Computed example of a mutant assay.
Amino acid sequence: MFDHVVFGVSDYAASKAFFLKALAPIGMAVVSEGALGIELSADGKASLCLFQTQEKPAHLHLAFVAENRQQVQAFHRAALEAGAKDNGAPGLRPNYSGKYYAAFVIGPDGHNIEVVCHEAED
């Protein structure tokens, strides 16, 4: 699968603060930060990398895996507190599968950020 995803953001400080808060419930944290931007990871293997750009970033759909439904709910709350716009409250998405439990928000640059749990309810 992916090793890392890299994309530019229009406001580095705002995006850094947003992603750190919104993705903390699934264990994402800073791995490194420097002149080229910031790298976040939950497992030290796959990472999300952000950098400042003057270009208008294209909208992305980024989906992150949660271990349980509580993490999906915590992500949604944290993302809204960090300034995201709701794009789908936590819940089952039976049109995807019987166990697809996800929440969606729109982040600072208009990206659709999702956290999904593929496990049955605890």
Rank of each mutant, 00 (worst) to 15 (best):
G34E: 02
T53H: 01
V6D: 12
I26G: 09
L62C: 13
Q71V: 02
A24Q: 14
V5Q: 14
Q52W: 00
S10I: 00
D3I: 07
L62P: 07
G37K: 01
K99V: 11
L23I: 11
T53F: 01
Y101P: 03
S41D: 06
L48P: 15
G8S: 08
S97C: 03
I106M: 12
G91Y: 04
F64I: 09
A89I: 13
G8R: 01
K45V: 15
G27M: 08
A66G: 11
K99T: 11
A89C: 08
A29S: 15
Q52I: 00
G34T: 02
H4L: 12
Y101T: 03
D86F: 03
F64G: 10
V5C: 14
D86P: 06
P25Q: 05
A14C: 02
L48M: 15
D3C: 08
E67S: 15
L92W: 05
L23N: 11
Q70G: 06
A13F: 00
A29K: 15
D109Q: 05
H4T: 11
I113T: 07
P94Q: 07
I113F: 11
P90R: 09
H111P: 11
Y96L: 08
A42I: 05
E39M: 07
V6S: 14
Y100I: 04
P94N: 10
A17I: 02
M28Q: 10
A79F: 06
C49S: 15
L40R: 04
P25F: 01
C49E: 14
I113H: 09
S15N: 09
G8M: 02
G98L: 07
G110F: 10
L92M: 14
N95G: 06
S97V: 04
Y100N: 00
